[in-house]
Simulated scan of single mutants.
Amino acid sequence: MTVHLPFRLVKRGGRKEMQMPDGTSGQHKTDNILVKALARASRWKRMLESGEFTTIAELAEREGIAPSYMTRVLRLTLLAPDIVEGILDGTQGPDVTLARVLGLVPMEWTKQVALFRRN
């Protein structure tokens, strides 16, 4: 007996993952790299808003990372709630990767959702 399963391999966060075709139900898998980045962004935003740190450069120095990277990660706090929810419950889709969300993403939530649904 031979069983054929249609799937493709995609890279997510530096590792390969099986992706099932559209319309098939599969187990949702949370992308821990994205979840960790969201948590860091939220924590850093709270630290800046509370006045614990006055500048991104000051906070980045304390965290031991480049200010430019911190700025890109902080943009995650501006993601549409639908996208954040998808990331947290593992239904974000294969095109929502850390590299992609750290890139140039529109500020308007409707445009963000359209961008990540289109691809």
Rank of each mutant, 00 (worst) to 15 (best):
K29W: 14
T54Q: 14
F116A: 05
T30F: 03
M107A: 15
L5G: 04
L102M: 09
G26C: 12
P106A: 05
E63W: 03
E108M: 05
D82C: 06
P6G: 04
E85H: 06
L76S: 03
A37P: 02
V113W: 03
F7R: 11
V35G: 02
G103T: 06
A80P: 10
H4K: 13
A41S: 02
G23N: 01
A80V: 09
P21K: 07
L5W: 09
M1Y: 13
A60I: 06
W44H: 01
A80T: 10
D22G: 09
R75Y: 03
T110V: 13
Q92S: 13
D89I: 07
M20T: 02
I83T: 03
D89G: 07
A66R: 11
V10G: 04
K111R: 15
R62L: 08
G64T: 06
G64K: 08
M18A: 13
G14V: 08
L98R: 00
L88P: 00
D31W: 00
G64V: 07
A114V: 07
S42A: 07
L79R: 00
S25Y: 08
V113A: 06
N119H: 09
M18T: 07
K111Q: 15
M20P: 00
M47E: 14
P106Q: 07
R118V: 05
L76T: 02
L48Q: 01
L48R: 00
L88D: 00
R43I: 02
P94W: 12
V3A: 15
M1H: 14
G26N: 09
L59M: 07
P94Y: 12
R100D: 05
D89K: 09
T110D: 14
E108T: 01
R118Q: 14
G93A: 08
G23I: 03
W44P: 01
T2Q: 13
P94L: 05
A37R: 02
Q112W: 13
A66G: 04
M20W: 05
G90C: 11
D31Y: 01
R43G: 02
V101E: 04
T77S: 08
H4F: 14
L98W: 02
